[in-house]
Amino acid sequence: MAETKTITLELFRYHPETDSEPRFQSYEVPYDEDWVVLDAINWIKDYVDGSVTHRWSCRMGVCGSCGMMVNGEPKLTCAAFLKNYYPFPIKVEPLVNFPVERDLVVDMEGFMDKLQDVKPYIIRDDVNDTSEGEYLQTPAELAQYKQYSMCINCMLCYSACPVVGHEDDFLGPAALALGHRYNKDSRDQGQSERLEVMLRSEAMWGCTFVGECTVVCPKHVDPAGAIQQAKAMGAQEYFKRFVMPKGAGATKGAGA
């Protein structure tokens, strides 16, 4: 007769109203090889300890809510299977490089601000009326930016990036990849305006191409590659402004 198998989860606990320091709390969870770490956390919350706090929604790797550190690696907990850890204990912590709100929930306001900073929307001088039909974009033009449009804002890359941890002014992998996504979109004309932001001292140049953002990205966005390309674009833009400061698209503050 089969004994019920279990696995231990060690959850990072921190409550802003009562704790000054975090602690770890262990829970025995029934082991099911189809379960992901998120299922185990939900089971704990449902049946053992309702005060365990975490974010989640889609459980299929696309809403981006459930990123946490699993045994020290940033992961989507809906895609981290228990069977890859069993029978050893699993340590779950909130994403690093973010302030912790409570337990496994981090503060993402700074991240949201950085997304907004790169102006992640189509900028055009001439906006066609919808009655004129769609802007044409060939599959080849689409391929230029498609990969960089796949970011689900799960923020794993921010936890993998040492520069994010050290440099507040660094916009970070996801935001820079998003800015680059629009810069590479054949429908967009806002490159100069966007680079204006990215050219600021450590905003983009803080990146030293550690490359771990790309390694941990669950959607294969390759932010590291996007940032390298953005730097090359930024350098061109910089020299364009330096050589002809009144040239196309140049705005105030150029050539500093």
């Binding site: 802003p16 009562t18 320091e21 690093v96 912790v100 030293t208």
Partner: peptide, 25 residues
């Protein structure tokens, strides 16, 4: 109401933390 967020301590020797960081260094 809210006591405040928890900030992890600054990690000076971060480059020793992951094999990838060591390779980077």
């Amino acid at each position: 109401m809210s006591g405040g967020q928890y900030h992890r301590p600054h990690r000076r020797a971060w480059f020793m933390e992951r094999p990838a960081y060591i390779r980077f260094m």
